[in-house]
Design a protein around this nucleic acid. Structure first.
Lengths: 233, 233
DNA sequence: CGCCGCATTGACGATAATCAAACGACGTGG
DNA sequence: CCACGTCGTTTGATTATCGTCAATGCGGCG
């Protein structure tokens, strides 16, 4: 569709033959969402299944008294909002576009039928969810056992790996994210994050500014994550 | 097999016809593990898929520097240790028996073939993992936004729902668990958990002792979880 | 030009970790 | 059967990490 995204290479569609894929695609609808709006909101009835073909989104969950958690950031090619396919009737989170975004949308029922007809598709989905579960448990371990600074370092490295783009000096995270977002991703407050990032900036580990993040010394962050106390100054 | 566990009712096997189920079962091996030992350890090569038919186990993950997280407690009828089916080559955690336990064990490959042959099975698995993912994300939100006391309350209520057994007075958690286990389940230290449980005991919310837990006032815990500050004394 | 949302910074306080010690129950072996 | 040792638990004192409260600065957008 001219977006440069080859769906045959998508993890979800591996092993599916061309005709079947085309058939499945013909059953999808396209949905465009402007930056700042959402594909769906937490607690809404979940009847669809989404595949992001362009743009970037942020999956969030809200606790009763104001707390927010960024479940994950995602970019083109990733599946999301498929609660119904996974056996949940309501969306567990909100999918907000942080960039103008486009997604393919199927009726959950259509996707389930396709999986029954093409077990490969179901197995691919199983691996996909398996991967997400694995990640979630890794994060749980980190959140339960590590302190804030290291968790932030991990988050930054992940963002770099996922949305990194070489910049004038260092690697820029091509993803508009506020300190608040980062805080919500690691389970900390805006303030703590700001302080820590500021200290990293002083040491020349990081650059950036308003909604931007540029990693200058990834190795330094890796060292911080891989424990050892780092040669301080 | 005389364990009183009806596998036809198992979530994983729903919608599978009797013959196919019998066939699949005939391909399983049985494995017994004594209390204190493990079905498998974190980081081991994962070539199998397990279904607990008797006993109780504890799934744990260890962080580099000593921290431990209890991923989940589970009882008869639950699937576990199927990393390979979910696309991971090594077990992400350890499955330790807290009671003498028995499990059916398949080669991961066998299970994958069965899923290809019976898409229903794959869809059931997908829902199962979907549920686990959902739980994991809920825990992430809690861990990131709530205080220790409330997290403990939640954990206790969950344990009660999962392994509760009416006792002389109140409901006993039929699961041998130490304060340390509970601490590792909520991301706190043994000491903090001990203190909080002690305070609950004083108020008559809880009873129990060494490795035992008896909930006397579940409503009180629910109130604690559902926020509002509770009428103190 | 002025407002609004994002970010920075400081002071303070509290939650929960860490350090430290002792107790009680249970199981084991003498 | 009792003594002993181990493991789980309790409790106290102290500290530190991080959240809360508060105020100000900055940059973009209307």
């Amino acid at each position: 569709m001219g977006t440069g995204l080859d769906l045959r290479r998508n993890q979800l569609f591996q092993g599916l033959n061309g005709c079947d894929l085309a058939d499945l695609l013909s059953r999808a609808r396209q949905k465009s969402i402007a930056k700042g709006s959402a594909f769906f909101h937490e607690q809404e009835q979940a009847a669809h299944c989404h595949l992001l073909t362009g743009g970037q989104i942020k999956l969030t969950q809200n606790s009763v008294e104001g707390g927010q958690l960024v479940v994950r950031f995602l970019g083109a090619g990733e599946v999301f909002g498929w609660a119904m396919v996974l056996g949940t009737t309501h969306y567990p989170g909100t999918a907000e576009a942080v960039t103008d975004s486009v997604a393919l949308v199927w009726e959950a029922e259509t996707m389930r039928e396709a999986m029954l007809a093409h077990p490969t598709l179901a197995l691919n989905a199983l691996e996909l969810v398996g991967g997400r579960l694995h990640e979630a448990q890794e994060r749980l371990l980190e959140l339960a056992t590590e302190r804030v600074e290291r968790r932030i370092a991990r988050a930054v490295l992940r963002l770099m790996a996922q949305a990194g783009r070489p910049a004038a000096k260092g690697v820029e995270v091509a993803f508009p994210l506020s300190r608040q977002d980062l805080a919500d991703a690691v389970g900390a407050t805006l303030h703590t994050v700001s302080r820590i990032l500021a200290s990293w900036e002083q040491r020349g580990v990081l650059g950036g500014g308003r909604q931007r993040l540029v990693v200058l010394l990834p190795d330094w962050l890796e060292a911080l994550v891989d424990d050892r106390a780092i040669g301080q100054l």
